[in-house]
Every structure is written in structure tokens, then in C-alpha cells.
Design a protein around this nucleic acid. Structure first.
Lengths: 361, 361
DNA sequence: TTTTTCAATGAAACCGGTTTCATATTTTGA
DNA sequence: TCAAAATATGAAACCGGTTTCATTGAAAAA
């Protein structure tokens, strides 16, 4: 098979110099169209591909983008990655996958990674406590885009949703269904989104004239077991103090809540209504099916890489799209690189809306 | 921050030559221990990391292993990847992720990828119809390990399970529960495992003296909708001809079967027993919970990379483990690079075993 | 017609490592 | 004590591209 071909071989076959072949490869304009065609034809014939390592060394760029991702078993991650992969597939870039556990702080690992100058940009999915470190790197002008998590507001490029408003609306939905005693199970505090969702929940209560009660706020973990534990705690309260509704920080925990409720003979939504957050694949199949605030995960993944690519390589086709159609619509001029996508409330059974709405209308 | 440091800089600081630093980096033995320590200390101080591209160019190796994976939204994939990532994290290698859709044939893409000589080895997860092409590449001595799918038997390194026997046992389980009319929903035929599972199912029937009936065998897709469609077809048969049990090709489809059954008022397992295959996270949470043949996915991922690394880099620590403890136990000498892991039947509610066993014992 | 400008191309330096080969120093053996 | 072998190290070639700079021929301007 056509292996170990170098640019030199192609040059010889085409009767030109290495430099010209390189120009063709990089789509430089100053090449005679006739020559270009000839070279291209020969490269295709021999199915030649330039060595990425050599190109990286010589050119300083890498055609590799690093993706920092939490364990893929986290239910929101695969869908984001699907969006990422789909965009990358249309480019000449490849993905270098770094698995991180957001609980630990991998700053040192991160530094080694970057010292090797492997990837020419970084896509950080839910970096958690790595955010601070990333911000430092960004300020040293490493192209970085963060997905769905960030520390205190900065101008580091970011794609995600408005957790505060989304949580506000989810809670609001419960309030509109007539609930007053609404509990909340929080996510872990290393994720900013946990705080923002809590904040939105709280604000919704306040705006409805309901005094937030600390005894209805539970610390969670974003995992099924976390939901179970907090639900156990919740249902072990005196039954008369039970909330009539729970806004759970994410769908995984909501699932835990549902199973514990069933074990305790608590009927959902009749006794207690439940609303989740994320809309993971499982949510449509829980019992009862889960009302939840849907994140456009696939879209988030796509947009994030597109944004990153537009930094790394301004020639990139994506840049044509982004600044014209998309960016200006959602971002204030002072923060040109924040893309905020809309969430949507998916109403299913667990909130009881379908049960009550027909009655009230 | 310590950026753009080269081996040259380290050499100067340590008062040695580039060559010596390179020797230290590659753990060559012919370096004075004193010198080695000094160089190592300086590298640590400056948090120096050698440029992967340069090292790749000069040395011909890459410290990158390519992972060919189907969409991560396929439920068995993340768990495999978790195993892969965990092993890689302990090495100096990185993962280059290529997303493929096994339905399409990406041979051309694959060739381009390899022409670039980016990765020094390939881990192919469920390559589907790409298998043939991969085999060709393997014979040209590209290190490749395949996970859980292969064409006709070859000596291409492979890690997976025995689908035939596992399906045999799953079916056997149903037979032992007293079922005689057992249906099967197959997976897509581009995956060899589909055929093997069907084969095991068939053999189990034959061995029990049951004549396999073609009308109880349905073509499926490995997706939820596939399960739904086939279940619709199945339950639209004359109720008296219904099978009393179904062995479904994978858990996703089994989930579809369960939902359709519920919609039709068919009780599982009372009216029809169901056994799935894979044991994906969802399975423990279906209604009823799904009895299924569990694949050790995490373990499969780990073993596969370990095997691949032992090809690429025989110095690798993993080689110490593999040939001694593991390989000899499971493989015939003629095929030294096939690792077959054991599956296990997870008995839950959907097969009805818990209901019947207490009675019969 | 002569000079200037520009497009097309090649020669050679360079990117940051690895590896070969030669050299200097030390250890071993006779 | 002196030759032979082993050890530690440096100089330089090399990997396969990119990029700069010089050169050539032709088109444009004077």
C-alpha cells in the first residue's frame, strides 16, 4: 500500500520542489492552477497524507484539538461529544481526548500536556475546579473554550446555558402548578452551575412571595445515589412537613428520588411533584416520566468547537457563520465570546401538570 | 509560565548536550546516575515536557494511540472508554479519538488517517464493516486491537466475549424456566456478534430438542426503536401463537420491547419473559428490571489497550502482567492475541426466575 | 523599447527532538 | 604496568514538513 511517501517523493513525481507541494497542501494562493492540479492529482493517486508530526514541528500548529472531558459515563457528556465529533469530522482536525475526574485537581497534568505542545487549542467540558487554572492559560493566549461551567465571570470563551434563569423557570413551573413548599436538591459546589441553579430556585420563590426555607434545601452529588440519599433524608421528615414538590439539581438525582419515593410508597406526582434538569436519555423512560429542563447538549458541543476553531484558524469556514448569524444575537459587545443557548422545559408526568392542567383550564 | 522550553535549553542549564538529555528522557541506561538526576531535577523545576511532534518526527513513534469508536451515545461505549482512558492515564500515551458510524464504510478516511502517521497503534471498538479493511492494515504490521467485533476468524488481536456461548446460556436460562416457544430479536448483520448470538440461541433450542421456528426470529437494529418495531410485529401475531419468552439481542431493544409490552397490556414476565444482552446502566432501572447477560465492558476496554500497548512498546510495564498472569489462561497457543472474557447472567425481574424459583425449590 | 512589478518557483534554513558515530575517560585483565 | 574493554558524553546527521529569501520569466508601466 502507499505508505511512507514523503512530500519529497510527490515533488519528484510532479517535477516540482518540496516548497511548491507544501504550498499546495496549505492552499496558498500563489501556485499556478495547472501545477496545483497536477500535484493534487498525484497526491490523490498515491493517497498521500502529510505527516502530522512533521507539519506540526515545522509549522508550529497541530491540527489537533484537545478535549478535556469528565468520565464519558456521565450522562450528559456523550451527547456533547457527539456534537463535537460531528463538527471535527468536517475539518482536517482531530480530537485528543483527555479524561479527567473533576473532583481531583489535575493542574499539573494539564501543564505537562500543554508543555508538549500537542494540541493547538483546548475544549474543556465541565472543567470544575480546573476552571481557575484554565483561565490563567487563556490569559497566556492559549485558545480555550469552556463548556457549561465557569468560575467567576471572565472573558474566557464559553458556551452553555443560563442555569439561573432555567432553574428559575423550572421552579416557576412548580409554583404555577400551585406548589408553595418546594424543596431543592443541589449539585456539588465545585460546579458553578449548582450554585446558579440554586440561585434561580431561590429567586423564583422570593418573586412569588415565598420565603425560602433552609430545611428544604439539600446538598447533592449529581449522581443517582446522591439523589437517593437526599430523598431518604427528605422523606424521613415528619410527613406533614414534606414539601409538595421538589426541584432536583439534575436528572440523575431525580431518578434516585423517584426510586426512593416508590420504595416509600410516595406517589409521584400526586403526593410530591418532581422536576429535574438536563433531560438525559433516561428521563423519558423513568417511572413516572420526568419533567425536566432540557439542555441542548448536542448543539452546545457543536457551537463550542466551532468557536474554538474560529480562534485557532481564522481562515476556517466556521468563522463565516459565527460572527454574522450567531454571536451578535446573544452576546453583549463587551463579551464577544460567550454563546448562551436556550433551554426548554420538557413537561412529562412527574410534575403533575398534565393531571392538573385539564382541570384548571 | 515555563513555555517554549526546548531540550537544548535544558541541556545548557544542566551543562550537558542535547543527546544526553534525550537519553534521560528515554530512560536509556547509559547515563551517569549523577547526571541523570541533575537533568531530571532541572526538567522538573522548569516543568519541561518534550514536544510530542518533534519526538514523533525524529523517533518515528508517536505516543498517540488512535481509538476508532462508534458514537459515544451507544450505551456500551462509554464504559469501554472508561477502561481505556484509565489505562492510558497511567502511561505517557494519549488518545486520539476517531468517531465512526459503523453503518458507513470509512475505509478511505481510515487510509488518510494512517497516511498521516499520527498514531502508532489502533484500537477499534465495534468496527463493523471496517473489520476487513483493518485486517489488511494489520497484515501490513500496523498494531491493531479489535474490541468485540470481527469478521471471519483471523489472527488479528481481539478482546471480547464469546457471544455464542453467552447467548446459548441466556437462552438456556429461559429453557430451564420451562419455556419452549422462545423468540429472538436479532442485531444488525453488519455486526458479527449479532450472528453469533443468534447462533447460540439456535443451538440452545436444538440441544433442548426444540425445533427453531423462523417465525419467532425477528431482524432488529440494536436500537430502542428496533426493539419497539419488532415487538409490535411480534404482539400483532395471533395471541395464541405468541412466544412465552423472548431473548433480545441487546438491552436497548429489550427496553423497546418492554415499553411496547406495557402499552399492549402484556405483563412481563407473567405473560412473556424477557432476557436481554449487555447489561447497560439502564437495565437495572427498567420496569420490570431486566434480566440480561452482562458484558465486562470496563474490563474489555482495559485489556484491549494493555494488549495494544504491549505490541507498540514491549518495554511497557503492562507486558509484565499480560503474558504471565492472563494470556495463558484463556488462549490457545495458536492464537496468542485473543483475550476472551467471561460474561455473567444478571437475573432480575423480567425473566420471571425469582417468581418461579421459590416454587420449584 | 526599457524599466518596474508581480506571479511562480526552487534552494536552503529551520522546527525540536532521536540516533549514529566518534571521542574521552575509566575500569578490567593480563 | 600497559593493552583491551566498557562507560559516559558530545557533534552532527536526520526525520518530513514549513517558511524565508532569492531568482526567473512574463506582464504592466513608463
Amino acid at each position: 500500500m502507499g505508505s511512507k511517501l514523503t512530500i519529497q517523493d510527490i515533488a519528484r513525481l510532479a517535477g516540482v520542489s518540496k516548497a511548491t507541494v507544501s504550498r499546495v497542501l496549505n492552499q496558498r494562493s500563489n501556485v499556478n492552477p495547472v501545477t496545483r492540479e497536477r500535484v493534487l492529482r498525484i497526491m490523490k493517486e498515491k493517497s498521500f497524507g502529510p505527516s502530522i508530526t512533521a507539519a506540526g514541528l515545522a509549522g508550529g500548529r497541530t491540527r489537533l484539538i484537545g478535549v478535556l472531558a469528565p468520565p464519558l459515563t456521565w450522562p450528559t457528556v456523550p451527547e456533547i461529544m457527539r456534537g463535537v465529533a460531528e463538527v471535527i469530522e468536517c475539518t482536517s482536525y482531530e480530537i485528543v481526548l483527555y479524561s479527567i475526574s473533576p473532583a481531583r485537581n489535575h493542574s499539573d497534568v494539564l501543564d505537562r500536556i500543554l508543555a508538549m505542545k500537542l494540541s493547538s487549542g483546548l475544549l474543556a467540558i465541565l472543567p470544575g475546579q480546573l476552571s481557575d487554572h484554565l483561565r490563567g492559560l487563556y490569559e497566556q493566549s492559549l485558545p480555550i473554550v469552556t463548556i457549561d461551567d465557569q468560575g467567576p465571570p471572565t472573558d474566557m470563551p464559553w458556551v452553555g446555558i443560563d442555569n439561573r434563569i432555567s432553574a428559575y423557570e423550572a421552579t416557576r413551573h412548580l409554583i404555577e402548578l400551585g406548589h408553595r413548599r418546594i424543596a431543592h436538591i443541589k449539585g456539588p459546589e465545585i460546579f458553578r452551575c449548582s450554585l446558579e441553579r440554586y440561585d434561580g430556585y431561590r429567586q423564583a420563590l422570593l418573586d412569588a412571595g415565598i420565603e425560602p426555607d433552609p430545611k428544604y434545601v439539600f446538598p447533592g452529588s449529581f449522581e443517582i445515589t446522591g439523589g437517593r440519599q437526599q430523598a431518604e433524608a427528605l422523606f424521613s421528615m415528619n410527613a406533614r412537613e414534606w414539601p409538595t414538590a421538589i426541584f432536583v439539581g439534575n436528572d440523575q438525582m431525580a431518578f434516585g428520588v423517584l426510586t426512593v419515593a416508590e420504595a416509600h410508597g410516595v406517589r409521584i406526582p400526586e403526593d410530591v411533584a418532581v422536576v429535574g434538569f438536563d433531560d438525559i436519555p433516561l428521563s423519558a423512560h423513568m417511572k413516572p416520566t420526568l419533567t425536566t429542563m432540557k439542555q441542548p447538549l448536542y448543539e452546545i458541543g457543536k457551537r463550542a468547537v466551532e468557536l474554538l476553531l474560529s480562534f485557532i484558524d481564522p481562515q476556517n469556514p466556521f468563522q463565516n457563520d459565527l460572527p454574522e448569524d450567531r454571536l451578535p444575537s446573544s452576546i453583549p459587545t463587551s463579551q464577544p465570546f460567550r454563546i448562551q443557548l436556550a433551554t426548554s422545559l420538557i413537561v412529562r408526568e412527574s410534575c403533575g401538570a398534565s393531571r392538573k392542567l385539564p382541570v384548571s383550564s
